[in-house]
Design a protein around this nucleic acid. Structure first.
Lengths: 213, 213
DNA sequence: TACATAAAATGACTATAAGTCATTTAATAA
DNA sequence: TTATTAAATGACTTATAGTCATTTTATGTA
């Protein structure tokens, strides 16, 4: 009989319900201000139950990060589909990343949190591995686009796709973090717009990638 | 009589002694693992005394960040002195930033923590303002170098120094964060060296800055 | 249907650590 | 020597992550 299977489905559903509640709470109050009692209350469950589904508050937040990475991957897939030339694909991926940060700032922050976490002693944590795997998928799309650009001649042939993808990833994260957190301040103090800074950065990438024969 | 002045000096000295102890503790255990009791014990003071000198654990960590920024500023000043051409100055500043992250990884992490902090509600915090001010000083050196490069013709004249400096700052932070935290992992998985990734990034900047007439 | 067993949920409890404050100790002034 | 001010203390309060013995609910069996 399918009771085991139904139980399994219900378990996954409950996990998702808890994550929905946790998102609301974490995103509205911020991770450090939000408490597990808040989440329990929002999920209409007791705190003890939360711990049947997630090992810790941290794990819960990482599970949310994983959701964000899946959304980002979807946006990346859509983006690359819009262009044929590798160089154009790379540029639109940059744009997609910025759009992700605008549309889902809380997921972007979660991603930042994950990227800055010291994972040295967490190789065996299932959710960390899940995030890592999702992150690889996202990065793979960028690597493929760069490779495509090299093959079709739009990107300089001396570029190493993997290394350039990582550099671009790190640098893009950095500039978007700066813009997200200090954007308003910068706008007021120096008159720079957030878009202007991001645009500047993508000009930098374009300059470095473009194959001028 | 100079008793007030001596008291003032002693107060500052004690603050520094506490910060020395806090650095030891925070840097060895990590911010979240370290406790104020640990710091008190290392400083050979009671916990209550710590709170006479610092408003919170967070403030204490930000005071350490401020120290780091002053060190970074010193390294930046030394670096720009080594070259005459603006473009060379900019490139050596990039190198200096990477060297800072290698020589003082704990200060670099503190800096990252500060940069990712949401400062929206902390405009009146004195230590935050101090960090902000030190950060401005560091950035100013980069802006000046870019301006110099434009003036001496080594950097493209259509670059906006302030905007480019911020972009470079954000991107450099991002790539060094990536390398610091995921460096080992990347080296094992993909065979990339940390230096290789940083080098790649600086090639990108060079490409974007260089004035090819 | 009534009972037995297993799974899921509960919330009072524990442990830990940040931050406070009434009290004590030390330094300076009268 | 005594009074006053400044500095330091550590027991206490508060907040919250995480636990676990107990209760409730769902499923299987006579």
């Amino acid at each position: 009989m399918g009771i085991q299977e139904r139980r399994e489905r219900e378990k996954i559903q409950r996990q998702q319900d808890i994550l929905d509640a946790a998102e609301k709470v974490f995103f509205s109050k911020g991770l450090s201000e939000a408490t597990m009692d808040d989440v329990a209350s929002e999920a209409e469950l007791s705190k003890g139950t939360l711990y049947l589904y997630f090992k810790s508050k941290e794990d819960m937040y990482l599970a949310i990060t994983s959701r964000g990475l899946i959304i980002l991957e979807g946006m990346f897939r859509q983006a690359v589909g819009k262009h044929e030339r590798g160089l154009d694909q790379v540029l639109i991926l940059g744009q997609a990343f910025y759009e992700f940060s605008l549309k889902y700032p809380d997921y972007f922050n979660a991603l930042t949190y994950y990227e800055l976490k010291d994972l040295a002693h967490e190789e065996n944590n299932e959710i960390v591995r899940e995030c890592s795997c999702n992150g690889q998928q996202v990065l793979a799309l960028l690597i493929q686009a760069i490779q495509k650009g090299i093959d079709d001649g739009s990107i300089r042939p001396d570029v190493d796709p993997g290394r350039m993808a990582l550099s671009m990833w790190g640098m893009s994260s950095g500039i978007i973090q700066l813009v997200m957190l200090k954007g308003k301040h910068l706008a007021e103090d120096h008159g720079f717009t957030m878009e202007g800074l991001v645009e500047e950065s993508y000009q930098v990438f374009l300059c470095a990638l473009e194959n001028k024969q």
